[in-house]
Every structure is written in C-alpha cells, then in structure tokens.
Design a protein around this nucleic acid. Sequence first.
RNA 1: GGUGGGAUGGCCGAGUGGUCAAAGGCAGCAGACUGUAAAUCUGCCGACACCGUCUACGAAGGUUCGAAUCCUUCUCCCACCA
Length: 384
Amino acid sequence: MNKTGMPEGFAFILEKVCPFTGARAGRISTPSGEIKTPVFMPVGTQGTVKAMAPFELKEIGASVILSNTYHLFLRPGREIIEAAGGLHSFMQWKGPILTDSGGFQVFSLATLNSISDEGVLCRSHLDGSLHLMNPEWSMDMQRILGSDIAMCFDQCAPYPCTREEAALAVERTTKWARRSLEAHKKEEGKGGAQALFGIVQGSVYKDLRLRSAEELLPLDFPGYAVGGLSVGEPAEEMYAMLSELKTVLPREKPRYLMGVGRPDNLVEGVALGIDMFDCVLPTRNGRNGTLLTPAGSMNIKKERYAKDFGPLVPGCDCYACRTFSRSYIRHLYRAREILASRLCSWHNLRFLVRLGEEMREAILEERFPAFLADFRSRWKGEAE
RNA sequence: GGUGGGAUGGCCGAGUGGUCAAAGGCAGCAGACUGUAAAUCUGCCGACACCGUCUACGAAGGUUCGAAUCCUUCUCCCACCA
C-alpha cells in the first residue's frame, strides 16, 4: 500500500473536472486493466452477465464488470472458485472485476436473515442452509474470487426507514468497514492486489450521510461508494444525498454510486461527481423486453411495433440496432426466443456503456454542461 | 342402422338447480423492473349507456321462483357394435 491509500497495481488519475457541474473524467488502473470513467459496469451476479458472453461484452465496450460474493459463495462455492484459480479464469473475463460484498443480499433477502453486530445469519435462498456472513467471511471470499476491486461488507437500510434504523445501519456499516479493512489487510498477505472500497450509508438523511462519510474517510479507502440509494426513494432524494457528499468525498479517489441505474440517474449522477455505476436494469429489463432510448424506455412487446421494420433505436451503434428491426425483435420476444433476451440486453448494455463514453468525451472536451442540457431536453422517461 | 360419450367465452378446459359473466391454463392487451431468489412479476381480458343493464354455456322448446346444470326434439362430433 502506497502513501495515498492505494494498493499496488491500483491507481486513480483524475483527468478533468467540469468547473460548472463538478462532473469528472478519470482513469482507474487495476491489475486487470484500465477503466476510463465515468463508467457503467454491467452486472454479472453469478459469474456471468446474463445472456452475454465475455467476447460480446468486449464488443459492447464494457471495461469492467460486477460480480457477487454471496451468490458465488453459495454456488459454485469457495472451493471450486479457488480450484479454478479465481473468477477471472473461471468465467474467462480478462478485464477488471468488481465484486459486491454480499451486503446488498442482506437487504434484498431480508426475510431469510437475522442481523447482529457479529454478522448476518443468512438462510440460503437455494437450499435453506444457514451461513454466517460478516466482514471476515466477505473479505476471504472476495480474495478467493480475485476481483480487482472488493467492497466492504455493509448494511443497506431499506426505504422508507426511520432515522433510528438508518443511524443503526450507519453505525454498523462503520464497524463493519473497520473489520473489512482489518480482514482485508490480513488477506493481502496471502497474495494478490485488490482494492477495497468503503461504502457510505445513511438512507435519505443528510446528516447521517455526512456522518457515515466522516467515519469512513479516516480509514483511507482507495475508493468510496454510495450505497443504499435507488432502493425505492424518489430520484430527488438520491440527488440530494449526492450533492451533500459531493464536496465531502475525496477528490482524488473514485466514487461509485451502487445500483444505479437509469440513463437519467447516470447523467445526473455524473453531474454530481460520480465516476462509477452498476445496475441490473439493462440486462433485467432487456430480458423483459424493455429497451433504453435517449427519450426513455420503450417496450418492444407493444402491438404498435408489430409492423415497424425500422431499427430498434435509430442511431444506436449496437449490433442489435445495426442488424434487426423492431418487428423482428418483437416477434422473437413474443415467441419466447432466447435471442430476444440477448439482443435487448445487448442493446441496453451498449446504450449505458456508450452513455459513459459520451459523458467522458464531453467532460474531456469541456462541453459537459451542453451535453447535460441536451440530455435533459431529450429525456422524457418514456420513448415516443 | 344400433348403443354409448360429448358439444362451455379466441383456443384448451373446469363446472351438473341458486353464491355463474362462468375456475384454471394458453393466446391477446397494458404496466412494473435501479449493488439480480427475476427469460420475472402485476393488472385487464363478452358487449354496452361499464357501482348498472343486456347478451351468453350447439339449436329449439319445456319443467322450476330460479337452468350451463333437469326433461323433450333436432343438429353436429367421437367411440364401439352391425
């Protein structure tokens, strides 16, 4: 670990900051390659971005993908991942991987869990078996996975939640961040370079967000994530939290807004100083027949597209848009053909990855405010 | 020619005197999806003047306060026998 809190093989260079909005362009170096920011990271929960092969992700322009500690722990399990030589080699994705700690599953699988300071007693959603998940467990598993960026084991408060609940989650998240860091240092001795990011909690309470950040900053993580947002709160609440954190989070470290999201959330997030995003939306919605466009979502299942032989989204450079008509994709979807899921995921992923590229370009070329205004004027939430 | 079984909303298919505009499934239409228990889930799905009325369970007639359900005749389909 060098003097800036950055582990070997990991670095963040802030290339340019938009003086009007605070939008940032940068580069993250990892042992598996470079990530240009702002960046959208496709989610590959079970060691695969659903319906997409690694070479296709490369074609799409994805530079880093997400995977999940909890899911890969339950299946295939620690032993098999270790025997495979880590996740990169197991899933044949050579680029950077960020692993989520399992903290989010504590929240999303709440009915199966009981939480204490020690950790989370979690019933497997697969077979009902009982597991204790805590910072030490998470750091061990993330080391086995061999991700380039690991996340602290945190507690994500639901929305809505009371101040008291949110405060407890912050308190626990801080405790767990210390333990995560401690455990991670020990794991480092076992070889491999991995950056560990801290996660700011605090629900929609400004003071709690600030407290959470204040408590985590001394731990000097090489990157900071904002968690516990996009869990059902109005977008304005999310933006309010981000603007609160904008000046508090260290300028020279990457900032990651977890679980976001929609194109408008990405753009507003970048305008509020965020560098990294991940979301299941492009793949999940893609599998469910919803496509992203500059104006908003469009549902390819609609009857109105039955005889629409134009491209999915005019002007899009993705394989699906370059090749197939709306009518054809609608047909595939209705016929429940697996190619529909693939092509819609393909488009949505490309759309968000490109959005990151476009924002980066705009920031570097010092025209982000115009980009922002243009995006807002086009965005309606729904296409046509 | 005889005997038995059957005909239910776009399709398949429950229902055998009232609580039936009629289960369930499919198809259709619409909506949702934000660190993935999701190729998932939800709603609508006879007509209209839509908190009500009308038309409906092969057709026509009958029994009954009341029928998709019981009776009669007819039409068509299936099986077996001749």
